[in-house]
Every structure is written in structure tokens, then in C-alpha cells.
């Protein structure tokens, strides 16, 4: 994280953390393109004006990304409603995880689908905890909820996933 404080090294930091931030932004946006816009907006603002602030840059960025996503959603609410009416509400479904050599692609797809079916409030906590490695306190701050609520949403999310994935994995 310290790397973000040195001019010129942001690219390395973003290469390492960008995928996690994009995944996180994807929970609050309708498409990957919107997620990219939102992370870009938040990162550029962070780099220009907030990089000298104390604290964990990733947690600060996630809070900033969430706000940018909410603003983006508000700005485009009218357009979104019009598009939903026209295309029947279909959302762009993009691949969330990287394909890895030797992995079971069916299993990965199954997990992605199960994740999509989770309630949004549980999915966002799961994403922040598993792939952004935030503590429940940091998640609580980012989502403006108590840490205990974040922890219980996380447990509900895991339990719901286990139920969905049971036949394939834990049966």
C-alpha cells in the first residue's frame, strides 16, 4: 500500500490491486465498463488529492469507489430505466474471475452464478472480505453499517453459497 505514496509507482499498485477494486466496484454497477469508470474516477481523485491522507489506501479507495458508484447510478438512473424497458432488463454478465490453468471451469462458473444469486447486501460483504481482505470494521466503515452486521451478512452469504454449491462440492 505504501507504494501508492510514491510518484510513479501507482501503476504497479494498481496492477496488483486493480482487479480486486474492479470486482468490488462491479457489485455496485450494472456493467464492467461502469465499474472501470467508477474505479478510474475514484483512483484519479485519490491520487490527485487524497494520497497523503493517513490510513489504509485500499479501505479509503473502496469507500470512495462506493460513493462514486452511487453517484454514477444516480446520474444514469434515467438512462438505465429506459434501457431496461427496451431490453427487458437484461444486464451484461461478464466473467468475474480469471481462468487458471488446470482449474475446473464448470466449478468456477457455478460459483460465479451462485454469487450472482446472492442478495446484493451479502455479496458486497463477501467480496470485500474474501477478495479485498478487509476486516469487518473496515467493511462496516465502507458500507456504513455496524461491524457485527457485516460479520453476520458474511456468515449468511457463506451459508447460502454452501447450500447452492452443496451437490457439486460438499455432497
Amino acid at each position: 500500500m505504501e507504494a501508492t505514496h510514491d510518484q510513479g509507482t501507482w501503476k504497479h499498485w494498481l496492477e496488483a490491486h486493480g482487479p480486486k477494486l474492479l470486482l468490488c466496484a462491479r457489485q455496485w454497477t450494472r456493467s464492467l465498463a461502469d465499474a472501470e469508470d467508477v474505479v478510474q474516477e475514484a483512483f484519479v481523485r485519490y491520487w490527485r488529492h487524497q494520497r497523503h491522507l493517513p490510513g489504509d489506501p485500499q479501505a479509503l479507495l473502496i469507500t470512495s469507489i462506493r460513493r462514486a458508484a452511487l453517484d454514477h447510478a444516480r446520474r444514469h438512473a434515467r438512462r438505465t430505466a429506459r434501457e431496461e424497458k427496451a431490453d427487458g432488463g437484461l444486464e451484461e454478465r461478464d466473467c468475474t474471475f480469471e481462468a487458471q490453468p488446470g482449474e475446473d471451469a464448470d466449478r468456477r462458473n457455478e460459483i460465479e452464478s451462485a454469487l450472482q444469486r446472492l442478495p446484493a447486501v451479502q455479496r458486497e460483504v463477501l467480496v470485500l472480505k474474501i477478495w479485498n481482505e478487509l476486516t469487518f470494521e473496515q467493511i462496516g466503515e465502507a458500507l456504513e453499517i455496524p461491524a457485527n452486521t457485516a460479520a453476520s451478512r458474511y456468515r449468511y452469504a457463506l451459508a447460502a453459497l454452501r447450500k447452492e454449491l452443496k451437490p457439486a462440492c460438499h455432497g
Binding site: K11, G18, D94, T96, I111, L161, R162, C169, H170
Partner: peptide, 26 residues
């Protein structure tokens, strides 16, 4: 079983950030 699932989820890597996006920020 939840712990096992948690570990399985952690093995999944979020999709790499596209190069054109990094260029755009650059």
C-alpha cells in the same frame, strides 16, 4: 464446511485489469 468453502473462494483470482484501462488512467 464454511471454512472449506471460504478457502475455495480465496483460490479464485479476480479478473485481471485490462491494459487499455490502465493506459486510460495513465
Amino acid at each position: 464446511s464454511l471454512q472449506e468453502l471460504e478457502n475455495e473462494l480465496k483460490t479464485l483470482q479476480p479478473r485481471r485489469a485490462p491494459a487499455r484501462w490502465l493506459d486510460q488512467i495513465n
